[in-house]
Structures are given as structure tokens and as C-alpha cells.
Amino acid sequence: MAKVVSINVSDKKGVVKTPVKEGTFIKDHGIEGDAHGGKWHRQVSLLAQESIDYAMKKDGLELTPGMFAENLTTEGVVLHELPVGTKVRIGETLQEVTQIGKKCHSKCEIYFKTGDCVMPREGIFTAVLKGGAIKVGDPVEIMKE
């Protein structure tokens, strides 16, 4: 079963996010208290623990959730293979995939250490359709149309 392994927030853009036990997600905004929230298509960022594990093995670094500035770290689902428009139920929320990957304009700390970063290729972004709480351990359910 796919699940949330970490919820991560920061009050500033461009920094590593700090894990929290629970997050409040606001419709049409994102996670409460996170600098990336707002009325746009990249309200919540997600990255799979499997992608982080791959980067650790490849680069020999100790990497933890939030280091890629993702809001949600998941396990058990290949996020970057979900088509745009896919609806995902996570905790009390309903979210819609709006973007796969991103262009990395300013290289992050991990890129400078390793010469690579998985977030631009394997991270995804969602918009919050229905707000609510998400806790570590909550299931991640891909909705079938």
C-alpha cells in the first residue's frame, strides 16, 4: 500500500524543508505555512522515497525527506509515471496532478554536491481540490476515473 512517509514545510523558498508529523492542506492553496503555497498549479510538491533511495545509492550521500524541498515524501507509488490530471486521495485531501518534473533554474545544494538532482525528473506537483489533514502514515490512493 502506498503511504506518506514525511510531510515537509519551510517558510522560505529555496531551502531544505523541515519534517512535521501532520500538515493542514488548504483547497486552492497547498500546505498551511509553506512558502510554496498559493493560487497556482504547483501548490504541493511530492517525491517518492524510492527516488531519494536511488539518489543515495547512486551518489553515496545520506539524504533525508525534505532535502529536495518536497512537501510530501511517499512510498509505494511511482509518482512520476502518473499522468497530469490524475486525482490522488491523501489523508483527508483530494489532489490533482498538475505537473511532472520541473525546470531547475537555480541549482540546489544537492545538485552542487552530486552534479544531479532527481526532483526535476521525478518530482510531481499537485493542486489541492479538497483540503484537510495529512499525517505521516496516511495512505496514498490513486483514484480511478
Rank of each mutant, 00 (worst) to 15 (best):
M1Q: 10
A2T: 09
S6L: 04
S6P: 03
I7V: 15
N8R: 04
N8L: 03
V9D: 02
D11G: 11
K12G: 05
K13I: 15
G14C: 14
G14H: 12
V15C: 07
V15L: 11
V16P: 00
V16N: 04
V16H: 06
K17H: 06
K17V: 02
T18K: 10
P19F: 01
V20P: 00
V20T: 06
V20K: 05
K21R: 11
E22Y: 13
T24M: 14
F25Y: 13
I26G: 00
K27F: 02
K27Q: 12
K27E: 13
D28V: 09
D28G: 08
D28K: 10
G30D: 05
E32F: 15
G33I: 02
D34L: 05
D34Y: 03
D34T: 06
A35F: 04
G37R: 02
G37N: 04
G37I: 00
G38T: 11
K39S: 14
K39P: 09
K39H: 15
H41W: 15
Q43H: 10
V44P: 01
S45W: 02
S45R: 00
S45V: 08
S45K: 01
L46G: 02
L47P: 03
L47Y: 00
I52W: 01
I52A: 06
I52G: 01
I52P: 00
Y54I: 10
A55E: 08
A55Y: 01
M56Q: 12
M56S: 12
M56T: 10
K58R: 12
D59K: 10
D59Y: 11
G60S: 10
L61A: 11
E62H: 12
P65S: 10
G66V: 02
G66E: 05
M67N: 06
M67P: 03
F68A: 03
F68V: 01
F68S: 03
F68M: 10
F68E: 05
E70S: 08
N71C: 09
L72Y: 07
T74F: 03
T74G: 04
E75I: 07
G76E: 09
V77C: 07
V78G: 06
L79Y: 01
L79W: 00
L79P: 01
E81A: 14
E81Y: 13
L82F: 06
P83G: 14
V84I: 15
G85L: 12
G85C: 14
G85I: 11
T86E: 07
K87I: 07
K87R: 15
V88A: 09
V88F: 04
R89G: 07
I90A: 05
